[in-house]
Design a protein around this nucleic acid. Structure first.
Length: 202
DNA sequence: TAGTTGATCGTCT
DNA sequence: GACGATCAACTAA
């Protein structure tokens, strides 16, 4: 069966629901005529005003403006002086909520992803670092898919970046845990992963 | 293999 | 002026 692009209505729902259902969907990035595709295996929800760890906790700013555009947009931010992270904006307009994509399982255009990753850094991946290291972290997948500041605010119903529908992951296969790399709101179990999936970040 | 640290800069206080 | 939704290299054992 042919997989379809997810409709706007998919995103305009409660953020935790979207975060959970994003698991197993495929993220597609059209880059220089090549389709780069990865299956989402790990997400985290950021619930705006309810969430001290969210960029929008303290209200709208120039940086987090995109999170108020409403479900179906891509929010890309820069952090640690060198990394980008990609979020899917969820909920209605002005909700200020989004889901962070934390890890992908590479599916298509893998050669290009490897190239993107090694171009930016003058690193060399030898024996050990193979596909495992390609997109198992929020900053890594941005590099692999060449998502940068230019993609901030991209409409996910366009052709540049979008998501393809896929059969929903069974509830028994979804693991819920605490989020990673934050200090505020540590206790909230708003991270979703596919159980026993080797592509999840650590 | 676990734990520590340097890189590096836009954004908010 | 401080720090972060990170990563990879380096150190010690």
């Amino acid at each position: 069966m042919k997989l379809k692009k997810l409709p706007r209505s998919f995103y305009r729902r409660p953020t935790l629901t979207v975060a959970k259902e994003l698991l197993g969907k495929c993220l597609v990035r059209n880059y220089k005529g090549t389709r780069l595709v990865g299956r989402i295996v790990e997400t985290e929800a950021y619930l705006g005003k309810l969430d001290p760890a969210s960029h929008t906790f303290r209200g709208k700013t120039k940086r987090n403006e995109v999170m108020y555009w409403g479900g179906g947009h891509l929010y890309v931010y820069f952090t640690y002086g060198m990394h980008f992270c990609a979020n899917v904006v969820t909920g209605e307009k002005e909700s200020g909520e989004a889901v962070l994509i934390r890890a992908l399982e590479p599916r298509e255009g893998i050669e290009m992803m490897v190239k993107n990753r090694s171009d930016n850094r003058a690193k060399q991946s030898t024996s050990r670092s193979t596909l495992q290291n390609l997109a198992n972290g929020p900053a890594k997948l941005c590099e692999a898919l060449s998502i940068r500041r230019d993609q901030n605010g991209t409409d996910l119903l366009g052709d540049e970046v979008y998501l393809l529908d896929a059969p929903r992951i069974a509830a028994a296969e979804v693991k819920r845990s605490t989020r990673i790399g934050i200090t505020n709101g540590k206790d909230k179990k708003w991270r979703f992963t596919i159980k026993a999936n080797r592509w999840v970040s650590r």
